[in-house]
Every structure is written in structure tokens, then in C-alpha cells.
Design a protein around this nucleic acid. Structure first.
Lengths: 220, 220
DNA sequence: ATTATCATCACCATTTATGGGGAGTCTCCC
DNA sequence: GGGAGACTCCCCATAAATGGTGATGATAAT
């Protein structure tokens, strides 16, 4: 079976060595490189022949930090599997890392034994979080998910009429005025009137703005 | 202090009575009505003078179920705070309820004592889930959030060039070709070329489609 | 009864977007 | 040294969206 290739990035060489040692105890995984700065990670991965199944990434590093690296992957559309290995267990940090597309998040304090599990899980395309991070995530979930927007938006949405809502939905479905008119059995003029009304009420610049408003406020 | 008004909807009258009894033991909460079918709930809330801070809603009910009721609120853009009170602890059910905008989810088996807490939390605009639901949600979270799309899309995204990616982003920011051209120091013609290319590659019909693609695939 | 809002449609002018070409430079790879 | 792609720009024509103004009937609220 092909081994899982892992690249380790941490500004403390001792830590890199430590992780490498732990990883090498497992026959299914092998180290294929390491970096001490974010810049080194980016340089390494920018070379076509350099590939790793999983990247263990510290956040705090000199010359480009872990976030910079994640942003680099996102911009270059490299779907690199990354496990953040950090001391931070702050919600904002975790959320930022998640939104930047990391696959796993393991805190240094709760690590050690779990890093192998994390690598194997992430290599399979699953996600992995250490227990303390799980706790934090659940909290986030409980307090935020499906929170239906804030006051200002709520007021705006309530000011939308049924027809406007309908048109908004169809706009977000990529339909043009003609198609919407047919769908709703109305004249194109009428649809255009609703378009204008939506642009005004939602304070956006064009149809894209209407559609984006719809997704942001879960109106579709 | 104003009391929290609660409407209870469950097809088993005994259960309605039971919940009412429990609720009435708390001086901050009072029952303002009940329903035995989903249709009754919709009828009740469609009358302008009928209002409740919190709706306790069963899923299984004759003549329109709990989901129908949630869909009704969503369509009518009524931001009703709803606590689902159900026997189901199935992930799909919970997700569906959440996506339909419920604020809390309490299973019947783990309920009783917690329903008061749930009502108070939800009344404040917070979310509330019973412990068993929390467990299920965390599982979901761990396995699904930030899953970076599926294969087909991944291939398409990788086929996008850097410039196309940039233009896509600006389109999603509601900018028109002229603005994008200025921003990128290019001619409008060039931006239009990228627009056409994006429409083709993403197989969408217009700019709205491009923007929606961007959000769906977390490219912005 | 009067006001207000919604729903519906129209005409106008202008700006943007879309669809189809073509075409030059550049770099990277075989 | 040829080819593929990326990046850049242009022309043309048509379709679509935006902005402004106005108008009618219906319904709901005060």
C-alpha cells in the first residue's frame, strides 16, 4: 500500500523532529519534507514535483504564517489537505482556519497520541479535530448556526413583498426577466419593476447583488 | 417584566396539557394558545393579532406537519422562534428543521426538565438543543463543514486560470466590467473575455450564475 | 372616505452583458 | 522549434438590465 506522505511545517525545529519521530513509528506514514517558515512551505509546494498527502501546519511562523499558507492554497486552488497544529484554541482562529479550508485542527497540548489518527483521517478525506477544539466548535454551532441574520437585514426582508421575494428567488436561479415573466405569467415590464424595487430595497448594485443577498440571508 | 408567550402544537392533547402544566410552574412564561394540527398552527399565526414569542412544535401532526409549518413561516418571512419538540433524533430530520429556521430542538425523551430552559434561551434569541441532539450535531459538523465540494466541481475550479478567478471574485462583489477593468488595470474588452470564458467553463447562464458558483464553492 | 400599499403594466433612454469572431505576445514544455 | 495555454485586446451585433416616470385597479388600514 502506498504510504501517506506528510510535510511538517513549524518554526521550532525540535517540534518538527518530535513530530517526525512520532510519525515514523507508524508504517503507513512517512515524512516527505519539512519547513520552518510559511514562505518555505509555499516555495516547497509551488514546485510541481513536490507533493504531500497531508501538511501539518503551525500557525505561528516567521515570514508568512499558517494563514498565509492556507490563503496561498486557496488562491492557487490547490486542494491540499492541511492539519493545523497550533497552541491556539481560540474560536476565531479555529473558524478562520476552517474557512480557509483546513481539514483538521489539533492543539499542541492535546496532541501527541492523536496526531497519527488525525493524519490518517485527513488522508482519507475526513476531518479531524482534537477534543478541545470539538468542544469549541460545538459551542459555536449551538450559538450561531442558522442565526437568521441581524436586525437591519431582518427589517429589510420583512419589507419585501411576496412578489418581490418570488422574483428574487428566480433571479438567484439565474433566470432572466423573460423567463421569470413566463414562469409567473406576468409581463416582462412587471418583472423589471420588481427588479428595480429589489435593487433599491436591498441597496445593491445589480442582479448579482440580489442573488448574493438571497444566499446570505438564506432566502433561497 | 413581560411574560414569555408560548404556543404549543402537538397532536396529542395529553402532551399539550402536560407541557402547559410544566410551563405554568414558571412565573416568567405563559401559554397563549395551542394547536393539534399543523393547519391549526398556520391558521392561528396567520391572524395578525395572534402572536407568540416561542412556538413549541411537534413534527408529526395530521393535516400539515411541523415542517409545513416551518416552511409557512419561511415563505411568509415570519421570524417566529420555534422549538421543535419531537421524538425524532434523526440527523436528516434535525438538519431539515435547522435549515427551515427553527431555533431549538428538544427530543421528547430528553425533555421535561429542559423545556423551560429551552424556552427561555430561545426567547432571548439564543439556540437550544437537548444533549442528544447536540451530540448528533457535532458529528455532522465534524464530518461535513468546510468539505470543499465534490469531484466534478473541483476539476472545473482547477481549470480556471488565475485571471478568471480574480474576475469571478470581483463579479461576486457586484462589480461591472468597467469597474473590474479599472481595478485590474486592464481594458474592458479583456474583462468581457474572461466573463465569457467563465460562463462557458462554469456552465452557467449569466453573472448571477458565476457569483452563485463562487459562493457554493467557497471561492470568495 | 381617504390614505397607503401592493400588484400590474408601459414607454423611454442608457448602460451592461452576452455571443461570435479574430489576433497578437508570452511562457512553458516536449 | 513547434504547440499549448494563458493573457491581452479588438470588432460587431444582439440581448438584457438599469433608471426614470407614470398609471390603473385592488385591497387594507385608519
Amino acid at each position: 500500500m502506498k504510504k501517506i506522505n506528510v510535510h511538517v511545517a513549524d518554526d521550532h525545529k525540535v517540534l518538527v523532529d518530535g513530530i517526525s519521530a512520532v510519525i515514523n513509528t507508524d508504517s503507513e506514514i512517512e515524512i516527505c519534507g519539512y519547513s520552518l517558515t510559511g514562505q518555505q512551505v509555499i516555495d516547497w509546494f509551488s514546485k510541481k514535483r513536490n507533493k504531500a498527502d497531508v501538511l501539518i501546519l503551525d500557525i505561528t511562523m516567521p515570514i508568512k504564517d499558517g494563514f498565509d499558507v492556507l490563503r496561498y492554497f486557496k488562491e492557487k486552488r490547490i486542494f491540499q489537505k492541511v492539519i493545523i497544529f497550533s497552541s491556539y484554541d481560540d474560536l476565531k482562529i479555529v473558524q478562520e482556519a476552517l474557512s480557509l479550508g483546513c481539514y483538521g485542527y489539533v492543539t499542541k497540548k492535546s496532541a501527541g497520541e492523536h496526531i497519527i489518527d488525525a493524519i490518517k483521517a485527513v488522508a482519507k478525506g475526513e476531518q479531524y479535530f482534537s477534543d478541545d477544539i470539538k468542544k469549541i466548535l460545538l459551542k459555536t454551532f449551538t450559538n450561531q448556526v442558522t442565526s437568521t441574520g441581524d436586525l437591519p437585514d431582518k427589517i429589510i426582508i420583512e419589507s419585501l413583498t411576496d412578489r418581490e421575494l418570488e422574483v428574487l428567488k428566480y433571479i438567484a436561479y439565474e433566470m432572466n426577466s423573460g423567463e421569470i415573466a413566463e414562469k409567473m405569467s406576468l409581463s416582462v415590464s412587471t418583472i423589471d419593476t420588481y427588479r428595480k424595487s429589489l435593487l433599491k430595497k436591498l441597496n445593491v448594485k445589480n442582479s448579482v447583488g440580489i442573488a448574493m443577498y438571497a444566499v446570505r440571508n438564506k432566502l433561497i
